[in-house]
């Protein structure tokens, strides 16, 4: 087992562990902090996947911006109290939980059995540039310029929308 494999399995384990904590923690603050951890581990995995740009963005946007937002909301609304004891799970919760596990099983089976990929990407040329800011930026500002601009519009709308929705009276 090579170093990089070891690193990967370590990271993967850490990611999953913190992800489970996210959904298992009773206190939302704990969930949020676990989520930050998950994002950071994922960023590392992205880097290992040669997606350096995305890894950086992950840290900046998710672990930075979005998580701050979450924490602010939790604190603003003082949601940290644990409230009443958890009621027994409803039927749809049981069904949903089982379905989620079953989907996981299905996906695992599928990925396990049909893992052969189309043999296109094993070439080593161009690896040096792959995933760099230069390459991604180049693509982003040429062929994908329109979607990129559309996304900026989306963010603008989201911003305005958030203000409108959250303010009690405009």
């Amino acid at each position: 087992m090579s170093t990089s494999q070891l690193v990967f399995f370590g990271l993967a384990f850490a990611t999953l562990f913190s992800a489970v904590l996210v959904i298992a923690a009773r206190n939302p603050i704990n969930s949020a902090m676990s989520l930050v951890a998950t994002f950071l581990f994922l960023a590392a995995i992205y880097a290992q996947l040669l997606a350096h740009t995305i890894a950086v963005l992950q840290v900046l946007v998710y672990a930075g911006a979005i998580m701050v937002l979450f924490l602010f909301v939790i604190m603003l609304l003082s949601l940290t109290h644990l409230g009443d004891p958890t009621p027994p799970p409803a039927l749809h919760q049981v069904v949903g939980g089982v379905a989620a596990v079953a989907v996981l099983a299905g996906l695992v089976v599928a990925i396990w059995r049909w893992h052969e990929m189309a043999p296109v990407g094993r070439a080593r040329e161009g690896l040096l540039r792959f995933g760099t800011l230069e390459q991604v930026g180049g693509l982003l500002y040429t062929r994908w310029l329109l979607p990129f601009e559309a996304v900026s519009l989306l963010l603008l709308v989201a911003m305005v929308g958030a203000v409108v929705v959250a303010k009690p009276r405009i």
Binding site: A90, H92, V95, A99, A110, W114
Partner: peptide, 25 residues
């Protein structure tokens, strides 16, 4: 009117889709 119930239905639907794909293959 319960969001999670709707989500559960979607999950069941997804499961059915995955199951069908595997079965077909």
């Amino acid at each position: 009117g319960d969001v999670q119930a709707y989500a559960a239905m979607m999950a069941v639907g997804l499961l059915a889709g995955v199951g069908y794909a595997i079965f077909e293959a």
